[in-house]
Computed example of a mutant assay.
Amino acid sequence: MTRNERPLTILQLYPRDMNIYGDWGNVLSLSRRARRHGYAPRLVDYNPGDAFPEEVDILVGGGGQDSGQSVIQEDLHAIAPRLRRLAEDGAPMLVICGLYQLFGHDFTTVDGEVLRGIGIFDAHTVGGRERLIGNIVTESEEFGRIVGYENHSGLTTLGPDVQRLGTVVKGEGNNLEDDHEGARHRNVIGSYLHGSLLPKNPRISDFLVEAAARRRYGDFAPAEIDDSLAERAREVAAGRPR
């Protein structure tokens, strides 16, 4: 089997209920990036009640309103053991906003409803009265400068057993108290950055593709990709007012 015949299954988690911030753009960007590196991406949607696929190489999940999080919660807990096993086995995942919150321990809404998370991240989220909206720039030791757009009212606090994705340079990030944005656990990334995140931050796409390829095939030989357009887009996005 040649490299460009090697499949990689990209699972989009709950696109029907958790896809309101351009999250499909992350799936599309990741799929095209995997193809550029010589793999054959296979896109699969998973919604409540669906059969969870036997093979998952990369999992991508998006944001949704509090009502959407309530809709998926029962199903999310039904597949939580499978998700936790995948995470501990090194499967790469990217979860944005609402699913980032539910990958923590819990999310307490502004009305006091407690939505239990699945505990992949050591993190707790509470609903705030103020929405945190605007362009955001963070610095990451692994991914360099990460640019995006945040739009959330949830305030997430990380525990000692999880690392931040980045340090906020412009914007708010996880909450109003510290300079943390996002979370990392093994190859699982959680973030509040929308906009979509991956088209402007190809290093994160490359990380997800590499982790998936090494986990499934034991090797990864990256292609040389011209990212000059993405770099210009990043510069414009980073220079926009908050």
Rank of each mutant, 00 (worst) to 15 (best):
A40T: 08
G90M: 11
N26E: 14
L115S: 07
R129F: 06
R242G: 04
P81M: 02
T2Q: 11
F220T: 09
D227C: 10
A233W: 12
Q101E: 04
I136G: 04
F103H: 04
G166P: 08
K170T: 08
F143K: 14
D219Y: 11
G127S: 04
D17L: 11
S70C: 12
R240S: 00
G25P: 03
G68Q: 03
I58Q: 07
S196N: 04
N135I: 02
L86G: 14
E224R: 15
Y14C: 10
F220E: 04
L132T: 05
V169I: 10
H124C: 10
P81V: 01
T2S: 11
P160T: 03
N175K: 00
G62H: 03
A212L: 12
S228H: 08
I136D: 05
A80D: 10
H180Y: 00
N201E: 06
P48I: 04
A40L: 11
P81W: 01
V95I: 12
D219C: 05
I72K: 13
V162N: 10
R186Y: 06
A80R: 12
R82H: 05
E141A: 10
H37I: 06
G127M: 07
Q69R: 14
L229W: 07
G61L: 00
V110N: 03
F220W: 11
G159A: 12
Y39M: 09
M1S: 14
T156C: 08
K170H: 09
Q73N: 15
G38M: 05
L99H: 12
I146D: 11
G25W: 01
L8F: 13
P81Y: 01
G98L: 10
E235T: 11
D45T: 08
D178Y: 02
E54H: 07
R42N: 08
G25K: 07
F207R: 07
L83Q: 00
M1V: 09
G68E: 08
V27K: 13
G119T: 03
F207M: 09
M93H: 07
A223N: 03
R203M: 07
L158N: 02
T138G: 15
R164T: 03
P15H: 05
R129T: 08
V188D: 05
F143E: 14
I136Y: 03
G154K: 01
L99K: 13
A80V: 02
R234F: 00
R215C: 03
L102N: 10
R214A: 01
Y192H: 09
G38Q: 02
Y14H: 05
D227H: 15
E88A: 14
N4R: 14
I133T: 01
I58F: 04
F107K: 13
I189A: 01
L30C: 13
D50F: 05
P241I: 00
F220C: 03
V60P: 08
R184K: 15
L229V: 15
P160I: 01
N4E: 14
